Amino acid sequence: MTTTDSPSVLVVDDEEPLVELYARYLASRYTVQTATSGKQAVELADDSLDVVLLDRRMPQMSGDKVLRALREEGVTAQVAMLTAVEPKASIVEMPFDDYRLKPVDKADLLGLVEVLVERNEYDKQSQEFFALAAKRATLQTAGKTDTEKYEELTEQLEETREHIDTSLDKVGAEAAFADLAADD
């Protein structure tokens, strides 16, 4: 998270009017940077970012390539793909945290960014769980549930949920024993 008072959001889309609109929506709550090309997005991205809103279909450098470049550079910000590209099963392999089809109105955009900022506070396993759940929900909404990748995603989601449940059970048991030890 940034060292400023408000979380930092990078809005990336080749449509400048849309970038400006999203920036206006977000400016009262967040520190907003904008980029109208993939190259510019990669240049601006650093560890101070909390959220990246990224279009998939851009000239020269697609959002998919930008996403890969950000992850290769170690950018850990939550990334939401905001796009007109209908999702396919191949999104399972993409390292994003949420996927939304355009158009996205102000309330949806603010809600999305708020959730992603909150997820930054979660441990890695919980972040992974929510990213997997978002991918599954995206594929369900698109009617793309009859693929092997969807089945693998569902299995991975359940495994992650089981790990989280086990961790929570362990923490609960440890807390209970700590309370008992304190009573002695």
Rank of each mutant, 00 (worst) to 15 (best):
T2S: 02
V11I: 07
E15M: 12
E15A: 14
E15L: 12
E16D: 05
L18D: 06
V19P: 09
E20P: 06
E20A: 09
Y22T: 00
A23I: 01
R24L: 04
R24H: 04
A27H: 07
Y30T: 15
V32S: 14
Q33I: 05
G38N: 13
K39W: 12
K39L: 13
Q40M: 13
L44C: 04
L44G: 04
A45E: 02
A45Q: 03
A45W: 03
D47L: 00
D47T: 01
D47H: 03
S48F: 00
L53M: 05
L54K: 02
L54V: 00
R57V: 06
M58K: 07
Q60V: 09
Q60H: 09
Q60M: 05
M61Y: 14
M61A: 11
D64V: 11
K65I: 09
A69I: 08
L70G: 03
R71G: 02
R71D: 01
E72G: 05
G74E: 05
V75S: 00
T76A: 11
A77K: 08
V79K: 08
V85K: 09
I91T: 00
V92C: 03
V92P: 02
E93C: 08
M94N: 02
M94D: 04
M94G: 00
P95Q: 03
F96W: 02
Y99P: 02
K102H: 04
V104A: 04
V104T: 05
D105F: 07
K106P: 03
K106M: 07
D108C: 02
L109S: 12
L109F: 12
L110F: 12
G111S: 10
G111V: 10
L112I: 12
L112K: 14
V115N: 10
V117S: 09
V117G: 09
R119E: 11
E121P: 10
D123G: 03
D123C: 01
D123E: 03
Q125S: 10
Q125T: 14
S126G: 01
S126H: 06
S126A: 06
E128M: 01
F129G: 01
F129I: 01
F129K: 06
F129T: 01
F130V: 07
A131M: 05
A131P: 03
A137Q: 13
A142T: 10
A142I: 08
G143K: 14
G143S: 11
T147M: 13
E148K: 10
E148T: 06
K149Y: 09
E151S: 00
L153Y: 10
T154E: 04
T154M: 00
E155G: 02
Q156E: 14
L157C: 08
E158S: 11
E159V: 13
R161L: 13
H163Y: 05
H163S: 05
I164C: 06
I164Q: 07
L168H: 15
G172T: 09
E174F: 15
E174G: 11
E174Y: 15
A175L: 15
A176L: 13
F177T: 08
A178N: 14
D179A: 10
L180R: 14
A182G: 09
D183N: 13
D184S: 11
